[in-house]
Design a protein around this nucleic acid. Structure first.
Lengths: 341, 341
DNA sequence: ATGGTTATTGGAACCGGTTCCATAATTTGA
DNA sequence: TCAAATTATGGAACCGGTTCCAATAACCAT
């Protein structure tokens, strides 16, 4: 209907007839096999070029039992932290001829399972998951199908799944200790939803542990994970009669941006009147006023490592090893040093 | 090597043997065909469940000649504007059982062509491209393979390609007219790289056209498309002996954030001392100090439309029609009204 | 009972590369 | 000069669902 032109279908067999060689030879040329005569290769390539042939990916995948596709299920693409992560993965995969298929779960475990199944059903050979907390059904599905998968953004997988990421609890603790070391013994912590988000929960656990050790007081404020959430939490904090502390720790930089704006709106100077610390090190953090002291998450390195691990598993049957990347505090100007005052 | 356990391979034929039905019937069940006895269906489904069978996507794709996969090539995933766009696409596609494969080009036309080919070679049935400006080789490739593709973020495709997006030039003009209508007749325009970015060029063209009509003066500042770029351009502008105007128009919100920070750093009040206008309407724009007056791009609607159009083309051979979405100015507090002063 | 449907199912052909095995051609070695 | 390699190539079998056509069974109205 679209193409009443050509001679039906253009496949290896047609190419074979055209060139006088066999399908086997055509295929060998297509795959850069060493066992083809230079001259033959040239002829075949010419024919391919002239005929405008492109190979059928499905047939190829069926015959080789490889799709060279890996899938990633992330809560959302709308947060730059995930986008950055996927960007790195994609870069790494592309270099080896792999494709990245993505799906979003909205942070829901059921949805994650569904989407993961769909990705596999559409050809994904390996999966990248977010966090360590997954549906039992998903785990069984992965085990049954012997599908390699990696938990990311955490450093400990669930139920035998390997993980590549950072130690959220340790980082939370580190952040609080840092603040305490600067004399802040009463910290307001703003964080996103804990439901369906083990990374946030782990960070909170770490913060609490750090507070206990350092003898600091902590107040938790849960809100939506966006600038608006950060701003409204800040407004709440500022409105409290009894000032709940001299520092605000945001478990995501987006929240910190909201706090920064809200502080500006109230004429509260950072860090003179209020110290602020973030988590992520987003693009703007180095340029805000004041520049934000935050924890730099190794998002890009994580993406690269995940991609490499998965490809190693698929291409060379190399077992995927859990990897803990470290993240350091980037000290800029948003936290005041209260010692000795 | 991995599985010395089972009885070799588990396919429809094995399932047929197990249940006593034929491969045809198994397939019919798998595809929810209406012509299967209720009872038969139940039995087959049970067997499938028990055996933990999952169908081979490649074989299915080969037989049906459909992969239900569409590909998107974007300059980068690291900018939230693209992430938001892809998020919307993914949501829409997922509802219809389609998968989204992504690739990044870094804004380079050669790379775009290469990546587009790879996506098709990996199974993409349709392509989503950014901007209207593409490699000739890519266009030929698409035409030769009769591969549906859509140019996005623009409202006019290249060489017959359909487009779904907004009118960058018109919006640039609209922005400048808006500023002029508020009494700003000397505007500094900060924008990202124009090389390999027709959208930015179109916006600039529009701005210049608007300036001519409104009798306003315009100064262009090109920089990198990030907060740092916005900040450094702002610093340059502030440093100019002769104040080049009372308003800064940023052709991307990220740049405006940099300007906002830099202004704060210099003690320049927005909008009292300087008016600022953006482009995109990112998450934070409604919450900054002052909230940013900007042009809200219909990113999500664009994503949804693109997905729908592509699926309509693939599932129902419906021709893709170029679509111009409109974007309006969101007036918040960052532009001062100079009239009558 | 009879011709004609309608509801189900069997099964082979097919989708289009890949790959292994056999064959043929050319070279190497002793 | 003959056997053993080495190099190229042909070709059929195969990957695993899908689908079309034929076949059987059950059902209907006259």
């Amino acid at each position: 209907m679209e193409e009443p032109s050509g001679t039906k279908k253009l496949g290896v067999r047609a190419l074979a007839k055209m060139t006088g060689y066999s399908t086997g030879t055509i295929s060998r040329v297509l795959n850069n096999s060493a066992l083809v005569n230079k001259d033959t290769r040239r002829q075949v390539l010419e024919a391919i070029e002239k005929a405008g042939y492109t190979r059928n990916p499905a047939a190829r995948a069926l015959a080789t039992q490889r799709t060279k596709t890996i899938g990633a299920v992330v809560p959302t693409l709308a947060h730059s932290i995930f986008a950055r992560f996927l960007n790195a993965i994609e870069q790494e995969l592309a270099g080896q001829g792999y494709a990245l298929v993505i799906a979003t779960s909205g942070g829901d475990a059921e949805a994650e399972e569904r989407r993961a199944r769909e990705l596999v059903d559409l050809g994904a050979e390996g999966l990248i998951l977010s966090g360590a907390e997954h549906n039992m059904a998903l785990l069984e599905f992965l085990a049954a199908g012997n599908i390699p998968a990696i938990c990311t953004s955490v450093c400990e997988g669930q139920d035998g799944l390997p993980a590549i990421g950072y130690d959220n609890a340790a980082l939370g603790e580190k952040a609080l200790r840092f603040l305490a070391s600067r004399g802040h013994d009463n910290v307001s912590v703003i964080h996103g939803p804990t439901e369906n988000n083990d990374r946030t929960r782990l960070r909170i656990d770490g913060v609490l542990a750090g507070a206990k050790e350092a003898g600091a007081e902590v107040h938790l404020f849960e809100t939506s994970l966006d600038v608006a959430g950060g701003a409204s939490s800040a407004a709440n904090i500022f409105a409290l009669k009894r000032q709940p502390g001299s520092a605000v720790l945001c478990l995501s930089d987006v929240l910190a941006l909201g706090v920064l704006f809200e502080a500006g709106r109230h004429g509260i100077a950072v860090p003179q009147d209020l110290s602020l610390m973030g988590f992520d090190d987003l693009d703007w953090a180095a340029h805000s006023v004041p520049p934000l002291t935050t924890i730099r998450l190794p998002t890009a390195r994580m993406g690269t490592s995940v991609a490499k691990a998965l490809m190693g598993r698929l291409d060379a049957a190399k077992e995927i090893e859990t990897l803990r990347l470290d993240a350091e505090i980037v000290e800029r100007g948003s936290v005041a040093d209260l010692r000795g005052r």
